[in-house]
Measured scan of single mutants.
Amino acid sequence: MSIQHFRVALIPFFAAFCLPVFAHPETLVKVKDAEDQLGARVGYIELDLNSGKILESFRPEERFPMMSTFKVLLCGAVLSRVDAGQEQLGRRIHYSQNDLVEYSPVTEKHLTDGMTVRELCSAAITMSDNTAANLLLTTIGGPKELTAFLHNMGDHVTRLDRWEPELNEAIPNDERDTTMPAAMATTLRKLLTGELLTLASRQQLIDWMEADKVAGPLLRSALPAGWFIADKSGAGERGSRGIIAALGPDGKPSRIVVIYTTGSQATMDERNRQIAEIGASLIKHW
């Protein structure tokens, strides 16, 4: 067993022997301040990774656009098919120029040779490549099948209805392509620590998230040296922004954090800054 596999296998073990965790309302004060600064709703939840206990939450059962955070769930569904012998990570998928959609920095470079399922998941999570996500959605049967996968996990809230990039439209009061912070946090925890996926697939999923290259201005910008984070960000229309993450000190994750916002007129930089400040408060009061 590799060191990384050992780390993920012992996530519940280490967490069980940690000192009790206590909620700190100071972080919620910052979440509410972010709402004021952005002029928009902000949803927040913080779960203990081992027990699933909610440590703090704000608007945990209000719907927010998922945006690209759905790509972690998508690759979880792909990995479940791999575990069941219905898919192979090494299978190569070929596609054409007509398949390319807006923001496809990886797939646009491989029109000639195609990409493997493993490479597509890596591109979808680490670079948020939209064509990679659409190609992977095709392998599982489309958005409705991802929703069905989530329902089978016990998540009857999260739903995907459309493809990239239309799913980022974020129309107010439109339930399409949305989740709730509580539902997303619980589902992410199941994917990373539950028995739904094999140990190898859980490790692969967290490795992809740990290698995320496009979430630097968010929670990662607030992390002290030595902290662990595996995350996936999302951005959408109407001032929408979000991030889902597993993080913790001492090089291992111990909490799940989900943050979503929508309806702001603020710039992307300002949305990023507010999420980073929430992260800084979380870490300060850990």
Score class of each variant (00 low, 15 high):
Pro60His: 12
Thr193Val: 15
Ser57Pro: 02
Ser96Arg: 12
Leu38Asp: 06
Arg81His: 10
Leu89Ser: 06
Trp208Leu: 06
Asp207Val: 11
Phe149Lys: 07
Ala23Cys: 07
Leu150Lys: 00
Tyr95Ser: 02
Phe64Val: 04
Cys75Ser: 07
Arg202Gly: 07
Ile45Ala: 12
Val106Arg: 07
Leu120Cys: 06
Val106Pro: 01
Thr131His: 04
Arg91Pro: 01
Arg189Gln: 14
Arg159Trp: 06
Gly76Ile: 05
Asp207Pro: 02
Tyr95Val: 08
Ser221Leu: 10
Glu108Ala: 11
Arg238Lys: 13
Pro20Lys: 14
Phe22Asp: 07
Gln97Leu: 14
Val82Asn: 06
Leu10Gly: 08
Pro249Gln: 09
Val29Gly: 15
Tyr103His: 08
Ala84Cys: 11
Leu192His: 04
Thr69Glu: 02
Gly141Ala: 06
Glu46Gly: 05
Lys213Ala: 15
Asp177Lys: 01
Met153Pro: 01
Asp129Thr: 00
His151Gln: 13
Ile243Tyr: 06
Met209Trp: 03
Arg92Ser: 10
Leu38Phe: 08
Ala211Trp: 08
Lys71Ile: 00
Arg176Asn: 08
Lys213Gln: 14
Pro105Lys: 06
Gly216Arg: 08
Leu196Glu: 13
Gly263Leu: 06
Val157Ala: 13
Thr147Ser: 10
Ala215Ile: 03
Val82Trp: 07
Val31Arg: 01
Pro217Lys: 15
Glu87Gln: 08
Leu19Trp: 15
Leu19Asn: 15
Leu199Glu: 15
Gly263His: 07
Arg273Gln: 10
Ala182Pro: 06
Thr126Ala: 10
Asp207Tyr: 14
Val78His: 03
Ala200Trp: 07
Asp231Ala: 06
Gly234Trp: 00
Thr261Val: 12
Pro253Leu: 10
Val8Lys: 15
Ile140Glu: 04
Gly76Cys: 06
Cys18Arg: 01
Gly90Thr: 13
Ile54Pro: 13
Arg118Tyr: 15
Ile140Asn: 04
Arg220Lys: 06
Ala9His: 12
Val258Gly: 04
Thr186Leu: 15
Ser264Tyr: 04
Gly226Trp: 06
Ile278Phe: 04
Met66Phe: 09
Gly90Arg: 10
Ser264Val: 05
Glu35Val: 04
Val29Ser: 10
Arg162Glu: 05
Thr186Met: 15
Leu199Phe: 11
Gly234Leu: 01
Asn168Arg: 03
Leu218Ser: 03
Arg162Met: 05
Ala77Phe: 10
Tyr95Gly: 03
Pro224Ala: 05
Asp269Lys: 12
Ile275Tyr: 05
Glu237Ser: 15
Ala266Ile: 06
Arg176Asp: 06
Gly263Arg: 07
Ala40Pro: 02
Arg241Asn: 04
Arg7Lys: 10
Val29Tyr: 04
Pro172Ser: 12
Ala225Pro: 15
Lys190Leu: 10
Thr126Met: 09
Trp227His: 02
Asp48Ser: 08
Ile54Gly: 04
Ala77His: 10
Thr112Asp: 15
Ile125Pro: 00
